[in-house]
Design a binder for these strands. Sequence first.
DNA 1: GTTTGTGTACGAAATAATTCGTAGAATGAA
DNA 2: TTCATTCTACGAATTATTTCGTACACAAAC
Lengths: 133, 133
Amino acid sequence: MSIKPTDSELEILNILWTKGPSTVRDIHDVLEKSKEAGYTTTLKLMQIMLDKGLLKRDASNKSHVYTANISQEKTQGQLVQRMIDNVFNGSASQLVMQALGNYKPSTDELNEIKKYLDEMEGTDAKKKAPKSK
Amino acid sequence: MSIKPTDSELEILNILWTKGPSTVRDIHDVLEKSKEAGYTTTLKLMQIMLDKGLLKRDASNKSHVYTANISQEKTQGQLVQRMIDNVFNGSASQLVMQALGNYKPSTDELNEIKKYLDEMEGTDAKKKAPKSK
DNA sequence: GTTTGTGTACGAAATAATTCGTAGAATGAA
DNA sequence: TTCATTCTACGAATTATTTCGTACACAAAC
């Protein structure tokens, strides 16, 4: 059971994750700022995403209100997983180092990551990272 | 100037990066082990990849020999970059932590990453990681 | 020679993603 | 009510990806 949103779908999901429940108009207004997009194109996309189960909606008003139906964290996890498998031959640390070498995070970010690593080391092969529900 | 191989194309690239120059037959034999695939399907894919500039080939023999025309490291870098932008709203450290939380690398891998981080910290805004040519 | 095997080229079907036009329902002015 | 606006639904064109059949070239084996 694995989802695979397209790039366009991801754009919409990102907006929904950030802004919360939104109408097609809301989403479209955001998209328009960064790209050409027809209103009905956005509408159709979101209808298809509804079909696929990526979104859910409240249709009790004239303007339907859409919400993401998959969590940001879970989606990120699955996409990262896929990238590790398909692009890094299964090596998470390879991905991590590529991300770091490529990106050069700030010292603050570095420290955050190191802290995270230290915590992991302590717990060794115990369980997964803590997650706030 | 940014490439975007599809999943199928990435499978082929991975094989080429691992095994070096190969014929369609070579690639197809590897693919067949993990999935259904017709020979001419693989052939066509590789021809299209040639068109796109993802591969190059030596056609001097009856069996043409293909090679990846884009480097593994550069491709990984671009894909990671894209994921950071599209999925993690620009935060590399978010990606890193998702990768780690999700995957639970071995202690060895953890140490490798930490070492890498330490090196980065020392050199602060210098340049990219050393690469053996 | 002819047959068999292995290869490339290429057209085209099948599927998926994206885009948009048009129709018609609902709402709110004028 | 009539007009303009705003919305959904939906059909359909466009483009990209994946798949495969068929044709034909070439070489080795018979």
